[in-house]
Design a protein around this nucleic acid. Structure first.
Lengths: 189, 189
DNA sequence: TTGATAAAACTAATAGTATTAGTTAAAATA
DNA sequence: TATTTTAACTAATACTATTAGTTTTATCAA
C-alpha cells in the first residue's frame, strides 16, 4: 500500500495543499472531498488530523495569518515613518493578491474568538501599532488610527478580490495615495 | 392544497425571507432547504423563481445593493461637504450592522461581473462620486478618493462583522475620525 | 527481535445538500 | 368554457460532511 506519512509532517502538508486549493479555486472549493482527492486519501482520513471542516478552516486561518504576519514583518524591517507605513501596506495588499484563498481563509475561521486565531490576528495588530507609533498620535487617536489602517487595507484587499475596481487605474497607486492622505489627515486633525 | 401565490408578488416575498434568514443566521444558512422550510414549500419549487442557488444569490445581492443605495440616498439628501460625507458613511456602516446578512449577500454574487449586479453597484459608486465632488479633487485624485472611501467603509463594515474590533471604543467614532482625516489628507495632499 | 501500542489510513453507512425530470393542480387568459 | 401558463409537487440522483468500526503500518519498549 501507500506509505504512511510521519506525524508532525502531515499537518503542514495538508495545510499547504488546502492553501493551494483555496488560492486556485477559492475557499468554497476547499472541501474535505477535494482536499482528500488532492492528497490521494479518502475524506474520513482527514479526521485524524483535523476536527472536520471547521477544524480545517480554523487551522488554515491561523496558517494564513502567520504567513501574512511574516510578510508584514519582513516589510517593516529597516524602515520607519511613512516609508514603513507604505511598505507594510503594500505587503498586505500584495499578500491578498498573491494568496487570495489564504487571505480569504484568514476571515473564515468558524469562531474568530478562538484563542489561537485571536493571537495570530493580535500579532498583526501589534505590528500596526508599532509602525504607527512613530507618528505620535495622542490618546485614543492612536487606537482609531489602527482601526483605520486595518480597515483601509482590508477594504482594498477585499474589493480588489471581488473585482470591485474596474477602472484602469493602478490599485497600488490608490492604496499609496489613500494611506498617505489618511496618515497626514490623522496628524493634522 | 395550499393556495398558489400570484406572480410578481412571489419573488419579493422570497427575497425578504432569504434576507431574514441571512440577517439572522448568516449567508451560509441561506440554503434552498432552509428557505423552502421557511416558506412552507418544497426545495424544488424554488426553481420556478430562481435559477438555483446561484440565481438566488444573484438576486439577493441586487436586492441588498438597492436597499443599501436607498439608505445612502436618504442620508445624502439636504447635506453637503463634510456633513454629506459623514452622513452617507454612517448610513453605510449602519446598514451593514442592521442587515449583516444582506450586506454579506451584496458581496456573494456568483458572478459580480453580471450586468444587473454591476449596475446596482455602479449606482452606489456614482453617489459616492457626487458626494466627493464638492471637495474639488483634481484629476485622478478624485478617482483614488472614491476607491479610498469605498475601501474604508467596506473595511470597517467587514471587520466589525467579523468581530474584528474588540476594544471598547465606539466604532462609529472611529469611522468619523478616519473619514474626516482621510478627506482632509486628500485635500491637503 | 519480538510484542504492544498508537497513528493514520481504510470501508461502510447515514444524513443533509442541490439539482433534474416528470407530474399535477391551480390560476390566468382567450 | 376551454386552453395555456404558472407554480407547486414527488421521486430520483449525485454530491457533501460526518460517524463508527476495522485494518494496516509505524513506533517504541521489553
Amino acid at each position: 500500500m501507500s506509505p504512511r506519512p510521519k506525524i508532525g509532517l502531515e499537518i503542514p502538508t495538508i495545510l499547504e495543499a488546502a492553501g493551494e486549493l483555496a488560492n486556485q479555486h477559492g475557499m468554497q472549493e476547499v472541501t474535505l472531498a477535494n482536499l482528500a482527492k488532492k492528497l490521494n486519501i479518502r475524506p474520513p482520513s482527514l479526521y485524524n488530523h483535523f476536527d472536520g471542516l471547521p477544524g480545517l478552516r480554523k487551522k488554515l486561518a491561523i496558517y494564513g495569518l502567520e504567513k501574512l504576519y511574516n510578510d508584514l514583518v519582513t516589510a517593516a524591517i529597516g524602515v520607519s515613518g511613512n516609508e514603513a507605513l507604505l511598505s507594510i501596506s503594500k505587503a498586505y495588499i500584495h499578500f491578498a493578491r498573491k494568496y487570495p484563498g489564504l487571505y480569504e481563509a484568514t476571515l473564515m475561521a468558524p469562531d474568530p474568538e478562538e484563542m489561537e486565531v485571536q493571537q495570530a490576528g493580535a500579532k498583526i495588530v501589534q505590528l500596526s501599532v508599532q509602525v504607527l507609533q512613530s507618528f505620535h498620535l495622542e490618546g485614543d487617536l492612536a487606537l482609531h488610527a489602527v482601526r483605520g489602517l486595518r480597515s483601509i487595507l482590508h477594504g482594498f484587499s477585499a474589493l480588489e478580490q471581488k473585482g470591485g475596481f474596474k477602472m484602469s487605474l493602478d490599485v497600488d497607486k490608490s492604496v499609496e495615495i489613500v494611506i498617505i492622505a489618511f496618515i497626514k489627515g490623522m496628524k493634522d486633525l
